[in-house]
Design a protein around this nucleic acid. Sequence first.
DNA 1: GCCTAGGATGGGAACGGTTCCATAGATCTC
DNA 2: GAGATCTATGGAACCGTTCCCATCCTAGGC
Lengths: 343, 343
Amino acid sequence: MSSLPAASHSTILEVARDAGVSKTSVSRYLGGERHRLSPAMQARIAAAIQRLGYRPNQMARGLKGGRSKLIGMLVADIRNPFSVTVLHSVEQACRARGFSLLVCNTDNDPDQERNHLALLASYRVEGVVINAAGRPSAELKALAEQGTPIVLLDRSLSDVDADVVGLDNAGAIDMAMDHLLERGYRNVLYVSEPPEGASSRQRRLERFRQRLAQAPELTGETACLAMQRDSDALRQALHGFVSRESPAPRAILCANGNVTLQVAHALNALGVSLGETGLLGIDELDWCALAGPGITTLAQPTEAIGQAAVESLMQRLAPPGRQAPPRRTEYAARLIARGSTHR
Amino acid sequence: MSSLPAASHSTILEVARDAGVSKTSVSRYLGGERHRLSPAMQARIAAAIQRLGYRPNQMARGLKGGRSKLIGMLVADIRNPFSVTVLHSVEQACRARGFSLLVCNTDNDPDQERNHLALLASYRVEGVVINAAGRPSAELKALAEQGTPIVLLDRSLSDVDADVVGLDNAGAIDMAMDHLLERGYRNVLYVSEPPEGASSRQRRLERFRQRLAQAPELTGETACLAMQRDSDALRQALHGFVSRESPAPRAILCANGNVTLQVAHALNALGVSLGETGLLGIDELDWCALAGPGITTLAQPTEAIGQAAVESLMQRLAPPGRQAPPRRTEYAARLIARGSTHR
DNA sequence: GCCTAGGATGGGAACGGTTCCATAGATCTC
DNA sequence: GAGATCTATGGAACCGTTCCCATCCTAGGC
């Protein structure tokens, strides 16, 4: 039990000497080939490992076998709750399969994104999960061409063949619009962050426009702005929408959680009463029940998304799935109705 | 510009051959010893690297020199916004110094905590930032004794000498109590998660009790409960507090962000009006302005805390600071007054 | 009883870097 | 102009593993 703490790390060779066996045998013991070792030897090795407090050096392991047991993840904004929840489930899924996760936050900066991609490559990660702009940079292409499996979260990319996991964006917009219509709203403002470079934003925006075109009883408009705290542009856009003469009941549809937060702040500042003016946001946040009468949201199955991403990687890691055609997995959103869509 | 994408990774030897030099020279070029190389050779090497799209293998690098350029971070709950903000700044600080961050989420599970610690050790991380229960497990001690610098975030540990970075907990409680008194509240309920194993929770609780004892005009009580969504225990505790006969104005003080969230939910369900019953929470959350009249909070300087943690590690990484005595860095909180403490 | 199969074990070459030490040539010193 | 010093470069050992291949031993087949 009480192991003498080795001054530094002990090596496989020291274990071998201590147990009076060869390092090959110790390696076999550790590498899941115990069945090839006699019980007596197994016991001796186990004792030596215990005694020395030995821990295999993953660096050295990765060097020889090429298996770093590392998965890389690129996150556009780690302070975004959606990203964090997905990150959480990705990490759990990795760990369950014996991989560790190297997380890189890009802060939405393409430069950092490229740097981090290069960095992940230098650690020889065995797969990469990307939740970021993911423009087809040279680094990304190099990674893909060199055989590292890649999964794109929430955004797709035409130029690189990678699996894509995310929300059924069109379905989510449909669900949102159906709900708003059912609740009697007839004039909808769709607020989004700039859709460039994020395919899911494009998809949602596009679908919103389609719905508008299909429903003659409905009017609407869109506002695409960079979201920052206390943005004047946003406040003005919202002020314009709510103060304009409109016989039809108004509602605001937010393209993601960050938009919902900023819109809620702005509406609060403008003194707009939620419900009378409808508000519906994509992404569930843990405070949505607390703001005013509660904000209606469309929850993404973040858990499932994260798991599916890792599942995808694992399949490509195994020889047969290596170069299957790119797959796309889409999940349906779940509506959580609250007071903000109750007139 | 258009590099032929090497089928797999190219090695330093291939670069050397391509440039017609020895791998020693290439290694020198990469390792910041360019001044020892003739300009001609530098140019040839640079060209070869470019041509082959070479990236040094960090695994191999770490093997010989023992410098993995990796920092490990243990996070108790990655879905906690405070943890995420700190994580964010730790990551930035690491990256600024050429280190990468290996993040492990323990989900508040001591078993996972030990596992992850062992894992970090196996990747030969050069330092560890711990924001978790951090009971002095064998793994933690082994890590410390073997010379890996350790920084504890937000919690201290008697048994292991590590630097500690966090909030000035007593000062924060003082600030909170002063504010509540000033606003006329005279009967305070302090709600916390169970303080066992988290020294900062203990410290805050202790200080609250001291303040209570020191101020005769004040009455108060404490409630320590595990916080889960829609906890009955919490609801009952709050119900008891707000419905009990009390001539003195009541306020609730929440020990951290998670408590604030759950308490806000429970008060919402009970129909309690904020302000009349005061509410003040430690940890700023980005929705606090939106709930009811806005929730007054004590913001932690998360940015500074993360930076200080990495700073600490870096100092110990350099030879002189190696075994300086453990240091403790405390930061003051910042009060953000909102409607929930306005009667 | 000899040859072979097969299981248990060990030796040593990789893996992709870093780093110590040696060497060749150029410059300097007296 | 010979010996010393310095600079630019290369050779080779080493870091801690894995894995191929060789060796030894025992047991089985005829």
